[in-house]
């Protein structure tokens, strides 16, 4: 189907800046051309693969103690990244810790998308709902997420799920605002007007026109929320409000290592680097995605 008398795209796009969306091919080409973005993407793939296959890769169990060999330095035979105060293998714990971090991050993003995106669509499309939903988001924003986390921990005990829920609730308002803004913009476009003249229902327009066009913004916002959630998990676990020992998480590893900071700094540095790597990967990849989705960004480069 490639050979027709159609004019080449570049010619068409030159004068009007093209449409809002993009073909999948163009998206991929744009990502490929972005070196930083590709670095982030590769880093992300490595992190995700390590976390998913943690039980297969890890030489020891995450809670397996070796009282004979505490505080080993990285590179010690048998312990790639050394051991901590109880002689637990840091490499194995890192793998399982990243797994927990990503799990919390993914749950948090899922929650904010599943709750935030529909509310954002509703608020953007129907004015009378906007007043209600926007006030509710204001109320949510007024609560620091730590209070929500402490509250949840007090009610049903600290756990990975509760940490993810608290973080998710904290990020719902930003997701609502992003989706609402996109909806307000898309609602004014001619193709929505056209759908109205066909007597298409509001819900139909929202789900068949507005949502697909807002998808890129939602995906980009998800990549923004993800690293923040990973840090949030580390923070909650560090404070004892998230994942409970001996299950490893990057935050718990930091918190454990803190007492022996000066005796064995690597036990603190390595999980710290892990958090930084995950955040960097998501941020770089998210930026690249945003550029790839934005048809005007490519011409500016």
């Amino acid at each position: 189907m490639a050979t027709t008398e159609l004019r080449p795209r570049t010619e068409v796009d030159a004068d009007k800046g093209a449409g809002l969306g993009s073909g999948r091919g163009r998206l991929w080409r744009s990502l490929r051309g972005n070196k930083l973005g590709m670095t982030g993407g590769v880093l992300l793939a490595i992190v995700v693969l390590l976390a998913v296959f943690a039980p297969l890769i890890a030489p020891y169990g995450p809670a397996e103690v070796h009282f004979a060999t505490p505080f080993q330095k990285p590179g010690t035979v048998g312990f790639l990244l050394g051991t901590d105060d109880l002689g637990r293998d840091i490499f194995s714990r890192m793998l399982f810790g990243m797994r927990a971090s990503l799990e919390v991050g993914a749950l948090c993003v899922l929650l904010s998308v599943v709750v935030g995106a529909p509310l954002g669509l509703l608020a953007g499309y129907w004015k009378w709902l906007d007043a209600i939903i926007s006030r509710l988001t204001d109320v949510t924003l007024a609560f620091p997420f730590l209070i929500i986390a402490v509250g949840l921990a007090a009610i049903s005990g600290p756990s990975l799920q509760n940490a993810a829920i608290a973080l998710g609730i904290a990020h719902i308002p930003t997701m609502i605002r992003v989706v609402r803004g996109e909806t307000l913009r898309i609602k004014e476009s001619d193709f929505v007007l056209g759908a109205k003249t066909m007597d298409a229902s509001g819900l139909r327009i929202v789900f068949t026109h507005v949502l697909p066009n807002a998808a890129s913004a939602i995906i980009v916002q998800a990549t923004v929320i993800m690293p923040v959630a990973v840090i949030g998990e580390a923070l909650l676990s560090f404070l004892g409000l998230g994942i409970q020992p001996p299950t490893p998480s990057l935050g718990i590893m930091l918190s454990d290592a803190q007492q022996y900071m000066f005796r064995s700094p690597t036990a603190a540095i390595i999980p710290g680097l892990g958090i930084a790597a995950i955040c960097l990967a998501f941020n770089l990849f998210g930026d690249a995605l945003r550029d790839a989705f934005d048809p005007t960004a490519s011409s500016r480069k």
Partner: peptide, 27 residues
């Protein structure tokens, strides 16, 4: 039925041409 001014704005960029044209039929 309407035909709008700006053919760049009146067609949903995420739709294929076939889906654009048969949208009224589906509605």
């Amino acid at each position: 039925q309407p035909v709008f001014q700006d053919p760049y704005g009146s067609l949903d960029p995420t739709y294929s041409i076939e889906r654009l044209i048969d949208e009224p039929l589906r509605v």
